[in-house]
Structures are given as C-alpha cells and as structure tokens.
Amino acid sequence: MERNIYMNTITVSEFSEDQNLIFNRVKKTGIPVIIMDKGTRLAEIHPPSLPEKQSRKFGCMKDRLKIVGDIISPASDEKDWEVLKY
C-alpha cells in the first residue's frame, strides 16, 4: 500500500491507515492528494497557503528614511508665496 500514498489519488482505506504519512508528504512536496471513495472524489488535501502579510500603516517607513536639512522652515521665502500677497 505504501506505493499508493505517493500518488495523487488514494482510497479512503489507504488514507485512514497512513494519515500522518500522507499529510507530511503533502506538506513536503506541495502536491495535493485526492481521496476517493468507490470511484467518487471524497476530499482533497492541499498544502497550506502562504500567510498574508499584514500591512502596517503607521510606522511602515521606520528606519528607511533619513531626514536631511531643515524640515520645519518653508521651502521658499514667504514673500514668494502667492496666497500671502492678498
């Protein structure tokens, strides 16, 4: 029976005999296994999907930027600002 657990399709009785071996094989190879019962697909075992990365909004650029120069003062003189002339 061991030769069948390395195939993509196994029977319910083969699955019940060697569950741990089948799960480990799917995890290791990434190849799904189909469990058949009397010629009918009963279930499929797939390797786990990769976890989604959680996006960090606040602090996502921490340690990636370097501030150079004055970030408080205006970039140009206030007399050049159109909005302040009125």
Rank of each mutant, 00 (worst) to 15 (best):
M1E: 13
M1C: 09
E2R: 04
E2C: 02
E2K: 05
R3I: 08
R3N: 08
R3W: 12
R3S: 07
N4V: 05
N4Y: 12
I5R: 14
I5W: 15
I5S: 01
Y6N: 12
Y6L: 08
Y6I: 14
M7A: 09
M7R: 02
N8P: 15
N8R: 15
T9C: 10
I10V: 13
I10Y: 14
I10G: 07
I10E: 05
T11R: 01
T11E: 04
T11C: 02
T11V: 08
V12L: 15
V12P: 06
V12K: 15
S13N: 14
S13P: 09
E14A: 11
E14Y: 01
E14Q: 13
F15R: 00
F15E: 03
S16V: 00
S16P: 02
S16K: 14
S16D: 03
E17I: 06
E17R: 13
E17F: 01
E17L: 06
E17Q: 11
D18L: 07
D18E: 04
D18H: 05
D18R: 08
Q19Y: 05
Q19I: 03
N20Y: 10
N20G: 15
N20W: 01
N20P: 09
N20I: 03
L21W: 02
L21Y: 04
L21M: 07
I22P: 01
I22E: 05
I22G: 04
I22Y: 00
I22T: 00
F23Y: 14
F23N: 08
F23W: 15
F23L: 14
F23I: 03
N24F: 01
N24W: 00
R25Q: 04
R25G: 00
R25F: 07
V26F: 09
V26N: 07
K27P: 04
K28I: 03
K28C: 04
K28L: 09
K28M: 10
K28F: 08
K28H: 10
G30E: 09
G30Y: 06
I31M: 14
I31V: 14
I31K: 15
P32Q: 01
V33F: 00
V33R: 00
V33A: 00
V33Q: 01
I34H: 05
I35C: 04
M36Q: 15
M36L: 12
M36W: 11
M36P: 08
D37H: 14
D37F: 11
D37R: 12
K38H: 12
K38W: 01
K38V: 14
K38P: 02
G39M: 10
G39N: 05
G39H: 14
T40C: 12
T40E: 14
T40S: 12
T40V: 05
T40H: 13
R41I: 11
R41D: 07
